[in-house]
């Protein structure tokens, strides 16, 4: 018998005795909240979000402020480029991936570009001043950016350089976490990317006397530019 079978048979043996559901009388074995019910009601339990896009943007901005994410709304592609160009004054080289928004603006910055889709050297990527990516969506409820290996140029681009810039469109803003997971299911259910991450603020730690320090191992700065 393989170890897999041994473990599974120990589990089956153990489960011949049934255990009570927490929060219910001892012998009560029925699940009270069904899966469908939970999926429906979860919106009513998690932190509140507004109804309109404006509410969502305001909440995302508020959460960004608390998380120390630099969140900026821009009006046009020109504006987006202008904001990037302003930030770019101290940069020597940048890293990006191929995408509608990244292609539209990053080439115009006039800096050497490392494109991760074409394969890259980890030390070189580490030495880039900034990693610029797109995303799958923004989540107003938590101020998060949802990225995947496919939408954001792989696993390292959004975590290895010291500054991560996300280029997003307003229509990518979703109200809450359940809708972000629904989007993942809808977009990838037949073939998920091998890497998915919800990024909520720049990298941080509180491991020394519980004092907040940004940029523990990942980016010290996170900028979200929303067009």
């Amino acid at each position: 018998m393989s170890e897999r079978e041994k473990i599974l048979s120990r589990i089956r043996e153990a489960l011949t005795l049934s255990a009570a559901v927490p929060g219910h009388p001892q012998d009560h074995l029925l699940q009270v909240v069904s899966e469908e019910e939970a999926a429906q009601h979860i919106h009513e339990w998690l932190p509140a979000v507004g109804e309109t896009l404006e509410d969502g943007l305001a909440l995302f901005a508020k959460n960004s402020y608390e998380l120390k994410t630099d969140f900026r709304l821009v009006d046009s592609e020109e504006d987006l480029l202008a904001q990037l160009a302003e930030m770019a004054s101290g940069w020597k080289k940048i890293a990006i991936h191929r995408g509608e928004l990244t292609d539209a603006v990053c080439g115009k910055l006039g800096l050497p570009v490392c494109i991760t889709d074409e394969g890259y050297d980890a030390s070189y990527l580490e030495s880039c001043d900034v990693g610029i990516t797109q995303c799958d969506c923004l989540v107003a409820q938590t101020g998060s950016v949802l990225v995947t290996a496919r939408s954001a140029g792989g696993r390292a681009l959004s975590v290895l350089p010291p500054h991560h810039i996300v280029l997003a469109r307003r229509d990518q803003l979703l109200p809450d976490l359940p809708s972000a997971f629904a989007l993942l299911e809808e977009r990838y259910a037949t073939n998920y990317p091998s890497f998915i991450s919800l990024i909520t603020g720049p990298s941080r730690t509180g491991d020394i006397e519980r004092i907040l320090v940004l940029g523990a191992h990942g980016p010290k700065q996170l900028t979200v530019l929303c067009i």
Binding site: P47, N63, H97, T116, D117, E118, G119, Y120, T142, G143, S144, A149, R150, G153, G154, R155, A156, L157, V159, Y192, P193, S194, F195, I196, S197, L198, I199, T200, G201, P202, S203, R204, G218
Partner: peptide, 20 residues
């Protein structure tokens, strides 16, 4: 409210992915 990174890993580098 949420920790900084909540990441899912579903396999080694898949065809068409740039790293992993």
């Amino acid at each position: 409210a949420l920790t900084c990174y909540n990441s899912l890993y579903g396999g080694p580098r898949q065809p068409g992915e740039s790293d992993g």
